[in-house]
């Protein structure tokens, strides 16, 4: 959020600076619209893009994946942002997707916990409150302490949509940052939580899901299922404006990989 605000502020200042020296036609502008989960990665990329191309105005409108896709169709923005793949009917309306990155979500438990591999159904059962004791899922007996993120968080939204537990999760704790979740799970042998894969270190244990351990590779090839793509949505028949095209090329090039990783997701290119 802070990054987002700083991006917007930076954008405003850039516009004002331009207005001040009456060279308004120099530079250019582009707009993105869509997924709130992508705010961090787009914030980082937008910031870097503006630094490299002085005088360019870059805007990001966090409305949600669905509205972002609609906005591209209606021509209200240059690039739409979606944290899910396009549906076939959306593609048939003339939209094209380019995967920017994959958001892998690790299911984490305390290092003392003996469990190591679960199915997606078991995870969903725990978060819905149908499974409440560790002995039901291969651990030592003890009440499961379900830890999640606050309403509106991109990670929560991603986790709940992948496991099919939207609006049904019964959380014991709702924490406001990835770091808080990891610290809490590291300090409680009965806790389970979820966090961006890139943030998970040795202090907690990331579980395998369906026999596949989470890693950059398994997220990229799709075998680790608790993940979703972050995609750029564009019109397949229309060309992007010059500014938008150069941002697109920049974001999908290898140069952007480090920035994308710093935003906590796995780069696709």
């Amino acid at each position: 959020m802070k990054k987002l605000i700083s991006v917007i502020l930076a954008g405003l200042m850039a516009v004002m600076a331009l207005g001040g020296c009456s060279k308004e036609d120099e530079g250019g502008s582009m707009s993105t619209d869509g997924s709130t989960s992508m705010s961090e990665v787009i914030g980082v990329l937008g910031e870097a893009f503006q630094q490299e191309n002085e005088g360019v105005s870059f805007t990001y409108n966090p409305t949600g994946s669905g509205s972002g896709i609609e906005a591209v169709l209606a021509g209200r923005c240059d690039i739409g942002l979606s944290s899910r793949s396009l549906k076939d009917e959306e593609k048939s309306e003339g939209l094209e997707e380019t995967v920017l990155a994959y958001d892998g979500i690790a299911i984490i438990v305390n290092t003392e916990n003996p469990v190591s591999d679960w199915s997606l159904e078991q995870i969903a059962g725990i978060y819905k409150g149908e499974i409440t004791d560790w002995s039901e899922v291969g651990g030592q007996s003890g009440e499961i302490v379900v830890i999640g993120r606050e309403a509106g968080s991109g990670t929560r939204d991603g986790f709940e949509s992948i496991t099919g537990t939207e609006d049904e999760c019964s959380y014991r704790q709702e924490l406001t940052s990835t770091g808080d979740v990891i610290t809490t799970v590291a300090g409680n042998p009965n806790a389970i939580g979820y966090a961006s894969l890139s943030a998970v270190k040795d202090t907690v244990k990331a579980l395998s899901v369906g026999g596949v351990a989470p890693s950059e590779d398994t997220v990229k090839d799709g075998s680790y299922v608790v993940q979703r793509p972050f995609v750029f949505v564009t019109k397949s028949d229309a060309e992007l404006s010059e500014t938008a095209q150069s941002f697109f090329d920049f974001a999908t090039s290898e140069d952007a990989n480090e920035l994308i990783t710093s935003a906590g997701v796995v780069p696709a290119n």
Binding site: M1, T36, P62, T63, E150, A151, G152, S153, G154, Y171, R172, Q173, E174, T176
Partner: peptide, 21 residues
């Protein structure tokens, strides 16, 4: 029990909230 205060209710959801929320 895990609980939420008036202050934390505002602080914890403000970051990503929209619309009526």
């Amino acid at each position: 029990q895990s609980v939420r205060f008036l202050t934390t209710a505002v602080a914890s959801e403000m970051g990503y909230s929209s619309g009526l929320q």
